[in-house]
Computed example of a mutant assay.
Amino acid sequence: MTTGPLEPELQAEQRATLAELLRELRRAAGLSGERLAVRCAMSQAKISRIETGKTLPSVVDVEQIVQALGVPVDDAERLLSLARVANVGYTSWRSSARAGSWHHQREIKALQEASTVVRQFLPAIPSGILQTRDYARHALASSVKGAPDRDVEKMLDVRMGWKSSLTGSGRTFLFVLTEQAVTWRRAPLEVMVGQLEHLAETAALDAVDLAILPRTAQVFAAPLNIFVVYDERLVTVELFSGGVAMRDPRDIDYHLELFDFFRSKALRGEEAVEFLRSAADDFRREL
């Protein structure tokens, strides 16, 4: 079970506490870092980085350490809960805007390029890597009161650079979009037509597997949030107010299962392309 997201300052405090507790438990057990490393099948350098807070241990790492130290069940569970909290990071869109939202766009590109398989579940809107510049401009120009200010044109420049990731060698992108995500009128009709045609063209790329979940599909699950899984090491989830990053293997496995479930109900291949072209024709007739 995932704990709630934390603001960066509290998360840093939780990480420091976890490092200190693990270090104290090792000393109380009378073990050196080298001996503990052998028991955990880790390197001594990794144990040192964990105990000094330079490396955030995964929940699996903490499980191995508490087992090696013979920590009582109740204490071990408290440490594991702390590790789960430390492995969930929250960044508000306001804090991103203060730093310059385009920096966050560059971070996303770096994550994509450092991954072999990227899975994106998109129940509300195509992700930036799938957007035309005109569509992205309308999507980024929020009309909601209280939304953080951002330099839309600078964000667009960075976002359009994401597309190079789709043609990079050895990288695969799997997308599942709902019908609502691709047909919600977020822009003028001519822009919507261009966006849908662009999606159909993108679906033909060798590195892309694009699926559409239609309204007519019988799906006994709610598509609540946009989420992205980078290989099997990181999940990011988008909220109205910010983004959550999860590294707990159980959270990652759960989102992989969710992705596969929705994908199994979706139109794929030529059926997906035909759906997109038909939707583009529907908008074109309204012009």
Rank of each mutant, 00 (worst) to 15 (best):
F175H: 02
P57F: 04
I65V: 03
V273D: 00
V38T: 02
L258T: 14
L25M: 03
G243E: 04
A37V: 11
T216D: 02
K163W: 13
V228A: 00
L199H: 13
T132K: 01
F175I: 12
F283P: 01
Y135L: 11
A222E: 09
G70A: 10
A124H: 11
V152E: 11
A41R: 08
V158G: 14
G243P: 00
R268N: 05
A37Q: 05
T2Y: 10
I65D: 01
V66A: 05
I212Y: 03
L21V: 00
V62T: 05
A147C: 02
I50V: 12
R133I: 15
L174D: 01
W162H: 13
L287P: 11
G170I: 01
A76P: 13
T183C: 03
A211R: 15
H138Y: 15
F121P: 10
Q14C: 09
S127H: 13
A136H: 12
A217Q: 13
T52Q: 07
R106H: 07
L196S: 04
A203D: 14
A12M: 06
R49A: 06
A99G: 06
A86D: 07
V191N: 01
R277D: 12
F227M: 04
V144D: 10
E190N: 11
E24Q: 07
R215F: 14
L234D: 03
